[in-house]
């Protein structure tokens, strides 16, 4: 009886695993396969006669190409630099300074992050950016995205900084190093893996951001890919699935490449490491 039950549970386990893999894997498979198909379909099918025509068509859409190669890069890199730099400094201070209630502060910040870029704050954000005269400018989008990503980024960075023994900095201090030398020679090399995690994470967030650029940008030549993808819809609002999927694949690639690059160079690790 016990063995029978055990077998049932292991069968159920595999059924569940297969379903879960299918649920997450099939859309990805569709995304990879469909752009090479000559015939539009929502089914996952291996193309019988693979073609690059869809990509050629996508590259003919100058507006969409510019969105991907210029606007997206500006927004994502700007956000990434801002978030990584500010988060590193803030996390460093939060981790080292003896501020009463600093944990509560970090958690509160974390909660705010979902509010800032969320739908609830849309109107105030629009008004603020309007007041600053940054409507229809990439800088406006970047600032809002930095603000939205910072709290979580600080939270992540703080975990990395907390893991570095303070005696490294104290030792450098006694050796006679200035605060800037301590940061450059001792602290920075130690937190670099953490900064890479935050950089990739904020890049991906900004790369895929839809709502904020959609609200704050007006001219079609400034829109990033997430909004420019609508140019592959017909006037009537039906999508050209082949072109949308080809464009989506191109849209995904840089993120994957960036991740692999950082992983290869620094080793991607989350939340600290093994104790020495």
């Amino acid at each position: 009886m016990k063995r029978y039950r055990k077998r049932i549970s292991s069968v159920l386990y595999y059924v569940f695993a297969v379903l879960a893999i299918a649920f997450f894997g099939l859309p990805l498979l569709w995304l990879i396969l469909t752009p090479f198909n000559s015939r539009a379909s929502l089914a996952v099918e291996i193309p019988t006669a693979p073609t690059l025509d869809n990509f050629r068509a996508v590259f003919q859409n100058k507006f969409a190409v510019q969105a991907l190669t210029q606007n997206n890069l500006i927004i994502a890199i700007g956000t990434m630099l801002g978030v990584t730099l500010i988060a590193s400094l803030a996390a460093y201070a939060l981790s080292r300074a003896r501020i009463p209630g600093r944990n509560a502060m970090a958690y509160t910040l974390m909660l705010f992050s979902s509010v800032v870029t969320g739908t609830a704050a849309m109107v105030p954000i629009f008004l603020i950016i309007m007041g600053m005269g940054l409507i229809d400018q990439h800088l406006g989008v970047i600032l809002v995205l930095i603000g939205g990503n910072l709290p979580t980024a600080i939270f992540m960075m703080r975990d990395f900084v907390d893991d570095i023994p303070a005696s490294y900095e104290e030792s450098a201090m006694i050796s006679g190093a200035s605060p800037f030398q301590i940061f450059k020679d001792v602290a920075l090399p130690q937190v670099r893996p953490g900064m890479m995690v935050v950089a990739v994470w904020s890049f991906v967030n900004a790369w895929g951001a839809f709502l904020i650029p959609f609200i704050l940008l007006r001219s079609s030549d400034k829109l990033p890919a997430s909004t420019a993808i609508y140019s592959f819809y017909t006037e009537a609002g039906t999508p050209n699935i082949l072109l949308v999927s080809a464009y989506a694949l191109l849209y995904t690639l840089p993120v994957v490449v960036f991740y692999l690059l950082v992983n290869w160079k620094y080793g991607f690790r989350f939340f600290g490491g093994i104790k020495r």
Partner: peptide, 20 residues
Amino acid sequence: CNPRERDVAMVFQDYALYPH
């Protein structure tokens, strides 16, 4: 005074050798 002005040297319990 700051540590750097005191001209002292210190060996820490965990040695604090910079791993990089």
